[in-house]
Each structure stands twice: as C-alpha cells, then as structure tokens.
C-alpha cells in the first residue's frame, strides 16, 4: 500500500537515502536546501510516497507563472526520485498524480518539466505519465 503525503523537514534524510541509491553520493546539504525551499514556498505541493512507514519516493515541484514568457500558472515538476527497490509498483505515478492534483487546485492547467537528454528512463516515465513535447526549446550556452 503506497501512501502519498506532502513532504516535511523530517523527510530530508530519506530523500538523501534515495538520492544516494541513485547517484551514489550522500548530499545532505543539497537536499536540506532544496526541501527548505519547497517547504517555505508551498509545503502542500511537493510529495513523498511511503510504504510500511518508509519513504520510497519523492517529487518536488511548485506552481509558478511568468517564466520564459509563459504567463499562465504552470506546475513545475523539478526533482523526483524513487527507491530502485520500489520501482515498477506505481510509486512514480501516484506521486505525479498527487502533484498534478495540487497544481490544479492552485490554479495551474498545465504541468511542465525538463529532462536531460541522457535520462532516457525519466523521459520514458514522463511520457507514460502523459507528458509530451512542449512548445518551448531548452537552449544553453557554455560559459
């Protein structure tokens, strides 16, 4: 049974754990700053997934408007991670559904995200969740 609930400051260590399983790096300072950012701006939107009382997934995001010339309120999905041992069981879908529902309640009619070209798994996951190409192009310049 997967339980979805808003992220709290007591999820930081569990998020570090999932991140470490995925990236091989323990980065508490990074996740402390990120979780604090979402909690102080909109503690209802970012979510974690629990199984048997253990956090097995997280998804951080918020509704913003006016970025990149897009005035409409947009629900941005910005960080996500699912414990490798809990994948394939609908955790990611449950998280994205929860975020989408919160975004909608906050007035957003569109959710957006950006996926690095090398993250084929995430790209495939997002497409399965109903995300498709957006009418924006990500550009960069090396400095």
């Amino acid at each position: 049974m997967t339980r979805i609930r808003p992220v709290t400051e007591l999820d930081i260590e569990a998020i570090c754990r999932i991140d470490e399983q995925i990236t091989g790096r323990y980065r508490p300072e990074v996740w402390e700053d990120r979780v604090a950012y979402y909690i102080r701006r909109d503690p209802d939107s970012s979510q974690v997934a629990e199984r048997d009382g253990r956090v097995v997934g997280f998804m951080l995001g918020e509704v913003r408007g006016g970025e990149f010339g897009m005035e409409e309120p947009t629900g941005w999905v910005e960080f996500l991670g699912v414990d490798p041992g809990a994948r394939g069981g609908g955790v990611g879908r449950a998280l994205i559904d929860a975020l989408a529902s919160r975004f909608k309640a906050k007035g957003a009619h569109v959710a957006r995200t950006m996926v690095r070209g090398e993250d084929a798994d995430i790209d495939a996951f997002m497409r399965r969740m109903g995300f498709g190409p957006a009418p924006v192009t990500a550009l960069e310049r090396r400095l």
């Binding site: 400051e9 930081i12 508490p28 102080r40 503690p43």
Partner: peptide, 15 residues
C-alpha cells in the same frame, strides 16, 4: 503552511 517552514528552520540547523 507557514509553520511547516518554522519546523525546517529548527531541524535543518540542528542537522
């Protein structure tokens, strides 16, 4: 919603 940040303002420095 504001209280959620207050807890983080305690726990993160303690960490």
């Amino acid at each position: 919603r504001e209280e959620a940040f207050h807890l983080a303002a305690g726990v993160i420095p303690m960490r």
